[in-house]
Amino acid sequence: MSRHGGLRHRLRKAVNAVMMALSGVSALFGLFWLFWILKDLIHKGLPAFSVAFFTKLPTPPGMAGGGLVNGIVGTLLITAMATLIGVPVGILAGTYLAEYGRQSALAHAVRFVSDILTSAPSIVIGVFVYAILVQPMKGFSGLAGALALAIIMIPVVTRTTEEMLRLVPNALREAALALGAPYWKVILRVCYRRVLGGMTTGVLLAIARVAGETAPLLFTSLNNPYWNFNPLEPTGTLNVTIFNYAMSPYDDWRTKAWGAALLITLGVLATTIVARIAVSRTQRLGSQR
């Protein structure tokens, strides 16, 4: 009996050790890909960085030299436009969920839909914007690209805003209401102010999310090898440039694609990490009351 029990005990220990080792290996497996990708990006992307890369326009196909300044500026402009469209919508919708809708059926429906939209295929959003904006206006435009990105941002900002506002203690609202402030003023002057930091970082996360998007831009903002500041014209972006250059047969273009890829990744990862640290600080503040 005791020997049998000892054997079984050892077997159970062995199974446990194997399963725990496997889970440790899967963690390593996840990290392995991250570091492999980052290593290749830095290794192949860094040589592309030069003064010209950040200051010059692209050269014609096959010619060496030039840079991607139009794509860098284009990405910044389109992301900025998307932020201007998407963030106010998201913040107001999130305010409704946290302050008015709460447990109502409508609020639940909005939460449900916005969570679905958050993960909806971004290329489908691109097709949608193509149908409602590019086709009627008979032309690709930076504005269409910005609208596609804004649609992707809205659900993210909505849910972050709601989360943040729910961290505001009720006592604060009650205190302000008791002083005779109308509810809209309480929201604007007390609740928003309390979570300003958290909402800003939420917006940053949403920006980081859309700044790397390519699929919704392919047939909305298209591409443009020249300077363009007119939102109604096709606009070049780093992402679409990566797609075109990486698929091209020219070595120089491929090197530039690696450079652009490194630039985008650095920007997105840095924003994400900064925002994440700030978010956890806000949440600590919120829970401490």
Binding site: L34, W36, A211, T214, A215, A246, W258, A261, V268
Partner: peptide, 20 residues
């Protein structure tokens, strides 16, 4: 670090996948 994998833009996965 694992969640950073989700932050890497998908075009980077594509390009890296093709060339590396």
């Amino acid at each position: 670090a694992v969640e950073m994998l989700a932050a890497v833009p998908s075009i980077i996965y594509g390009m890296w996948g093709l060339f590396s």
